[in-house]
């Protein structure tokens, strides 16, 4: 917490995630906080962002919170209802998507993602959703941004399962593997913004109230620090917080 205006960590994450969206982006969004970040961008600095949902929805403008991309509330005021082959095929694989906003269970220093399965310290396995369109988006979108909460167990140099490829895949470049785009450009968490480059991950900014050293300690991947230290992420504005609280997530499903 910082300043006069108080916010939750998830609200800070939604705001920092929204700042990765550039006006005019053609964006495929995943379930959860990516959805809130994209809609916040649409209502603030990126009014012409075009959203796509892998279920086959073009350019929705949802007016009320949704339980996921299969919730018809998320499809409101769409310009076209189509198919997965049209969104993940024509738009994503066809090279027409500039930004993917994705969630993850686990991420490495190149932005490769695990959304499939994790291993507990006792060796037991837990399974989650799998890829869906995540692999297609990470493989083919011009750039992707990972949006997730910041816990040290979610950062690993050796993913339990590599669902979606990052900027390097097991020491290979994307071009060598056969992937067309640069891939992930940032991991945005509720504590920091980590830029992903071909030279590795960089702690670009920490959120207001966070100490760079403690963030670094909780991020167990190779992480470079810029000369002069990381910047401070801009604090949420009153406008952004009001939008989240009154329109995008009034029931606190995502940002409590």
């Amino acid at each position: 917490m910082s300043g006069e205006e108080k916010w939750t960590r998830a609200e800070m994450l939604a705001v920092a995630g929204s700042l990765q969206v550039v006006d005019g982006d053609v964006t495929v969004v995943g379930l959860g906080l990516p959805q809130i970040a994209a809609l916040l961008a649409q209502r603030t600095h990126a009014p012409t962002v075009r959203l796509l949902l892998e279920i086959g929805v073009f350019e929705p403008v949802p007016a009320e919170p949704a339980m996921g991309i299969a919730d018809p509330r998320m499809w409101k005021d769409a310009t076209a209802f189509a198919s997965t082959l049209e969104v993940l095929g024509v738009m994503v694989h066809g090279g027409r998507v500039s930004l993917g906003l994705l969630g993850a269970l686990q991420v490495d220093q190149w932005g490769s993602l695990n959304t499939t399965e994790v291993e507990a310290p006792d060796g037991s396995r837990r399974r989650f959703r799998g890829s869906g369109g995540s692999n297609d988006i990470s493989s083919n979108a011009s750039r992707t941004v990972v949006i997730m909460t910041h816990q040290s167990r979610k950062f690993s140099e050796a993913l339990t399962f590599l669902t979606s490829p990052g900027r390097r895949i097991k020491e290979q470049t994307r071009a060598t593997v056969g992937l067309p785009s640069q891939g992930p450009c940032a991991v945005v968490t509720d504590r920091a913004v980590i830029a992903l480059t071909d030279a590795g991950a960089v702690l670009e900014s920490v959120h207001p109230g966070e100490q760079p050293d403690t963030v670094l300690a909780d991020t167990p991947i190779p992480l470079n620090v810029p000369a002069g230290g990381p910047k401070e992420t801009p604090a949420p504005t009153a406008t952004q917080l009001a939008l989240i609280r009154t329109e995008l997530d009034p029931n606190n499903w995502y940002t409590s």
Binding site: L88, H93, T116, S131, N135, D136, S139, N140, L159, F161, L162, T163, S164, P165, I169, K170, Q172, R174, V177, G178, L179, P180
Partner: peptide, 10 residues
């Protein structure tokens, strides 16, 4: 054929 899934554990 596709480029999707290349490099992944899938």
């Amino acid at each position: 054929t596709t480029r999707s899934m290349l490099g992944s554990d899938l």
